[in-house]
Nucleic acid binder design. Sequence first.
DNA 1: GCATCGTGATAACACGTGTAAGCATTGGTA
DNA 2: TACCAATGCTTACACGTGTTATCACGATGC
Lengths: 335, 335
Amino acid sequence: MSTEQSNPPQVTSADVARAAGVSRATVSFVLNETPGARVGETTRARVLAVAKELGYVPHAAARSLRAGRSDLVVVPVSVSAIGRLFSEWIDEVETALGRLGYTVVLHGDRTSDPVAAAQVWAQLRPVAVVAVNDSRMTAEAGQVLTRAGVRAVVAGAAAPVAGVTTFVGDQSEIGAAAIGHLVERGRTRIGVVMPAERGLSAFARPRLTGAQRAAEEHGASVTALPMRYTDDAAAAIALLCRELELDGVFGYNDEYAALLGAAFGDRGVAVPRDIALVGADDLVLGQVVRPRLTSIRYHLPSPELLAEAVDRLVQEGSAPPLPRVWFEVVPRQSS
Amino acid sequence: MSTEQSNPPQVTSADVARAAGVSRATVSFVLNETPGARVGETTRARVLAVAKELGYVPHAAARSLRAGRSDLVVVPVSVSAIGRLFSEWIDEVETALGRLGYTVVLHGDRTSDPVAAAQVWAQLRPVAVVAVNDSRMTAEAGQVLTRAGVRAVVAGAAAPVAGVTTFVGDQSEIGAAAIGHLVERGRTRIGVVMPAERGLSAFARPRLTGAQRAAEEHGASVTALPMRYTDDAAAAIALLCRELELDGVFGYNDEYAALLGAAFGDRGVAVPRDIALVGADDLVLGQVVRPRLTSIRYHLPSPELLAEAVDRLVQEGSAPPLPRVWFEVVPRQSS
DNA sequence: GCATCGTGATAACACGTGTAAGCATTGGTA
DNA sequence: TACCAATGCTTACACGTGTTATCACGATGC
């Protein structure tokens, strides 16, 4: 990042002003259509023409420096660490916020320390930060952001975070729901898949603890099954299940559950007769495989509602509370 | 976005300077460890302590404004519109660039006009823009970016783009490879799935034209099969295939192919006996379903290589050409 | 006793932008 | 003719940062 090369010439509003034979202020008035400003029709046309010809694009950094506020919304998320469900939701949140005039950027850094991560986000001086199921969004992180002038700090988390607008969605409820369903189906010796892939533990751990909690309530037993997302790993887990004489498995996820289901099929283990299988996230994939996967469906706050909350927080400093995330068992053939 | 609310107090380096009883310049020297600067050990310690206590975080916009260059790399991409293959690759590119000191942000705007899109990216004044299979990265878009001072404009595209460092990867070769393989397996009446989901046409159309080209060469016939990513749509297409007496299908993608394969299975259509099925992207999913999917595997430039190319472009203004993307048929049970 | 030097710190500018305040010109009115 | 108001434009500052040039001061060399 250290170089002696000369910077390429950037077109600034001063260039436009010079070429149009007016002052820089006039250029600003024309391009921003400043309400109170008075500019003659001929000069206005000339400025617009020159700006277009020179290919002038305003400098967002300089603009927000002057304004004391940017239109940036940072969403910390690693694209590969989220499932289809979340990526579609995030896409829609992005569209909704864009409609309100915000510029959304996704940032996928892997910094594990909450404060360090927050400092990275804070450097960009966004007007808002929206974190979903990011364990780094702690109270301290929120404080760092607030001190950096971030107006809206929003998080989806298992429990309210101090100083952060939280929409509560406890992943452990997914595990609990899955176990509850399996017990209803008469299963008591239950395995819970724990994905070994990086970045997923934030989701996986609470799902396991929720499963353990529910198992204890219902008098069932739970065994954690660490598994990578490969064919071979699934085969090994399938053997292990038979060895442990399990009669039900919560597969963490539709993706992992489907992989495991295929491994069962290959080894003549009948689903759901010999062993019942439950996924989560309700992906289309669950309906691609046979037997179709029983799954746990999410109900996240609507993207429009979230965008509105962010906007209210930015404008007025407060917003009505966001609805709680809730989960629903969708029974299909695999259980 | 227009509000009269007072801005929250932001901690600036001036605040740190005041609290530490030194000048702002000294603060800058300490925090940046400026090579030529001389600061006493006691003041250095005091500045660091005060900065930490106040929770000071530098203002990236102001910094890059002064420096005339940012460390931002913009990657235009909609998270939901890319498959697992690309998201993992992008994640690794992000990590590799991060290691070199860059800040990568993903931006998922849906602007369709190339110049308008480029202007949005240019506002952020990134030091680099990396676009993969984004049809908006045209020569004009590249020019807008260059004029805004973007040093590295990199694209993955079907053909070299003027003024843009391109790594060529023609999606039509995927379609061609799939058809070639099916013909090899004795199939001549071939369907090609066209996903109806938004954002996917950039990939789908070239794959179809490649298939058509190859079919013509080999004396086979190709029928386009528009299909949404749902169970019902797949069922309808499965019926249509039987009606049209097709003996092979290229499913666009492992995801769509798997969905269609399940629909075949439900209707007693044997794969590959009655109809052969080929996917693409070589996702794990292809090994989750039975029969396992024959697929087309990508070989993208390694993330490290790409990151290095970006860095060289930024530093020196030029970089060795990136390797061409190539594709490989991975034969499995479905064909 | 004066010049030289090294050390530690600061004053001042520039980056590109938005905007409040001000200045010249013109038309209208008393 | 003298004054006011409106129009059209400009001058000047601030935002937070990095860096160059400069300054004060004590120690050292002759």
